[in-house]
Design a binder for these strands. Sequence first.
DNA 1: CATGAATGAGTGTTCATTCAT
DNA 2: TATGAATGAACACTCATTCAT
Lengths: 205, 205, 205, 205
Amino acid sequence: MPKIVDRDARRDEILDAVYRVIGRQGVVSATTREIAKEAGLSNGVLAHYFSDKEDIMASGLRRSHRTVGRRMREAAQCQVGLVALRTVMLEALPLDDQRILEARIEVNFWGQALGSPVLVDIQHDEFERLWDTLYGLIQAAAERGELRPGADDEELTHELVVLIDGLSLQAVMYPARATPTRQVAMLDAVLDRWASAKGRRALPA
Amino acid sequence: MPKIVDRDARRDEILDAVYRVIGRQGVVSATTREIAKEAGLSNGVLAHYFSDKEDIMASGLRRSHRTVGRRMREAAQCQVGLVALRTVMLEALPLDDQRILEARIEVNFWGQALGSPVLVDIQHDEFERLWDTLYGLIQAAAERGELRPGADDEELTHELVVLIDGLSLQAVMYPARATPTRQVAMLDAVLDRWASAKGRRALPA
Amino acid sequence: MPKIVDRDARRDEILDAVYRVIGRQGVVSATTREIAKEAGLSNGVLAHYFSDKEDIMASGLRRSHRTVGRRMREAAQCQVGLVALRTVMLEALPLDDQRILEARIEVNFWGQALGSPVLVDIQHDEFERLWDTLYGLIQAAAERGELRPGADDEELTHELVVLIDGLSLQAVMYPARATPTRQVAMLDAVLDRWASAKGRRALPA
Amino acid sequence: MPKIVDRDARRDEILDAVYRVIGRQGVVSATTREIAKEAGLSNGVLAHYFSDKEDIMASGLRRSHRTVGRRMREAAQCQVGLVALRTVMLEALPLDDQRILEARIEVNFWGQALGSPVLVDIQHDEFERLWDTLYGLIQAAAERGELRPGADDEELTHELVVLIDGLSLQAVMYPARATPTRQVAMLDAVLDRWASAKGRRALPA
DNA sequence: CATGAATGAGTGTTCATTCAT
DNA sequence: TATGAATGAACACTCATTCAT
């Protein structure tokens, strides 16, 4: 009579431990033993849920992306146009401790990805998804006439992506500088620059 | 008479090897053996020029910063105001292969720094220097009346810093997207937004 | 169910290997690899049972002391006075192969201790314990009137300690000279010199 | 025209450095680099004066023995009998800082010798010489009628040797316990036990 | 002779991984 | 499934030694 274990739940517990360790000590210190200890599990149990360490890391990165992606979608559910875009962006920026932790994870993975084809693929996939999400919202806003004529959807998308990455790093490395107020101001400056008169009226003052 | 060796030159050779290894395979693969092999030296030589690996890495990071800093200063030597600021920013952005490599180094170190007090200190120092450089140029531009009234020097500085970091990551991770054209366009958009009429006349169309 | 391993037993096995290696080749050759090989284990196992090499060495030294100390106490259990003291000393002297090996270990550690605060502390602790044991037995003998009047307990203790150390070295370095017969003769000479008439009657002819 | 260098003088300088390093930090820290640095010389010079490290150590040990031996012979030059023996012994015991340092060197070498046939041979040679010196003095004293009838020359010699080794270790490891007073008292106790009435009159009260 | 740069084997240690229980 | 003992390659680092200058 096999013990019933919810594999996905257990995997999530382990990935939670991965986040805690990385958030606290950095990827360099995220050894399998440290992860297992943090999860309150034995050494060997990781092998039951992940094929190897790269799998753990890749799963962690993927789940982190999924979490952020879901939150972004949920946040904008009942909103449209530039307002929806702004709401989504507010979810993507490191505005509170939880999201600063997520940004820490992300920054830690950047360096890892530069040495691992698997991780870089995941990063690319995620980037595509983020890009598509933002691009879709921008197109929708454009169709609603909230963007100024001649606005380049791709360029705006790229500006937002750069803003997320740049602010993520700043928030992680120099938390004192990247205050929420300043982050929102920067976001609004970008949006304002691209918005039509109608779009500006939709956005908060 | 002993064999004459220029210690600083040899240190630089080793650091060059560090850059090549990190640029090619990522920090994770930048072991002391790999670095020595890349430099065409034996294992033990590193000990003659660096106290330990942390010293190698810290020296590499510092030299990378120095290189970029020197290039920025030299580039803007005979220029003033917003034009000087723009020139400096063009040196800081990953617009060609050399600077994309530098950005790779930088991104690789970000993750390392999150687990190493020494590296994080170096990063902070460098950030201060970059900040001061940009801030000084912005103030100079403001005094020349090239910034629009009410411009917040600090906020502009921060926007530029975020732009550099965000574009560095993009250029490293998704080189196809962060084209030089687009990068320059984003820079000019930021400058344009803060420039006064006089400032706009000074900047290139 | 995990493989059941008696950690203390395994630690002891490893320390046995340490003794064999040191006894055969000296501390200098007692590398972690050599110890592991001698124990029939792989390189990495040592990390399961000891925090580092200093821990291995310190544990080895401590266990050696414990073994000798226990044997000394057990040997004198049903004896009193100078007879008990003599019995205890006979356990401390390198009179057979087992105890010559122990002396080898000890001599090897002397030099190590001169360069290691941890080991020197252990040596000091052990010395205190040995001193106290002997001193206690001497006082007891004195109370029984087995020491000649005016005997200095401290001085006698010191003489016995010096005898143990001096004979340990001799037995290790020049085994042919420090024969058991001669060792016992030297011990008895010391005891005889301090014994009262009553004490002499108690001691073996 | 080759530079004139007194090879022996230079060798002695290096060996002095060896003593200082060992005396200060123990054999374990006596690396060739450390020795060269201590001697104020460059790395490579050692190769001109010694064939390898074992040669350095062996030479150091030999010279240490020679020094002590010469001092012992000189001290007893105009003396005879038990008095001469006592004088010689006083030179062999660690009664002042200089000789405690020599004892440190000696103790450090003991452990090394247990792993090195070369060193152990040197130790044996030295032991023979010390033995012969003491044995000769004892025989001379016996011939002068200063030893009690039935005294065993060999046994007395051995007792003195054990005393030297035991006290050397004590003085090095627990300097507070092995005071000069106590050392001399122990020596005199041994001599007194073996002396005839005539011998006792010759010795100092 | 003297220098000190260079070598490379060897050290202690860490760690992802495997596997008997 | 779960355990944790065991493995062995890889790591950073040390050091006696060699050798061109």
